[in-house]
């Protein structure tokens, strides 16, 4: 079973890590979480993004929600603001979400095949 002590230790580790880097996050990820997004799988997408960010130990990455973006037919939608650009990805399932973290957020390559425009 997971214990409260584990959580305390984890908090200390995370605090040490974030103390080293002050200021604004370098990468901002936005997940559309309106009813349409949630029905299309945005919860799995969000959790996959968080798991991959945690697993790769990435710092300076924020994840935030937005409501319906009016692109309901292309949900789940993920917006990545990184390396000076804004990219909108369509139909992002959990697997695509993990690749976006590895290839776009971490390595800086936009995955053109999944890009959509609004």
């Amino acid at each position: 079973m997971k214990t409260v002590d584990e959580l305390r230790k984890l908090r200390e580790e995370v605090r040490q890590m974030t103390r080293l880097r002050e200021g604004e996050p370098e990468v901002r990820i936005v997940v559309a979480m309106g009813t349409c997004g949630i029905a299309a799988g945005a919860r799995e997408t969000l959790n996959a993004l968080l798991q991959e960010i945690a697993a790769r130990g990435l710092a300076g990455v924020s994840v935030s929600p937005v409501g319906c973006m009016g692109l309901c037919d292309r949900e789940p939608i993920v917006e990545v603001n990184a390396h000076g650009g804004r990219t909108l990805y369509a139909r992002v399932n959990a697997e695509k979400a993990r690749r976006i973290v590895r290839e776009h957020v971490e390595a800086g390559w936009v995955i053109e095949d999944w890009v959509t425009r609004n």
Partner: peptide, 10 residues
């Protein structure tokens, strides 16, 4: 730190 991805995964 509650909102940190590693804490959320835990």
């Amino acid at each position: 730190e509650l909102m940190h991805p590693r804490v959320i995964v835990w």
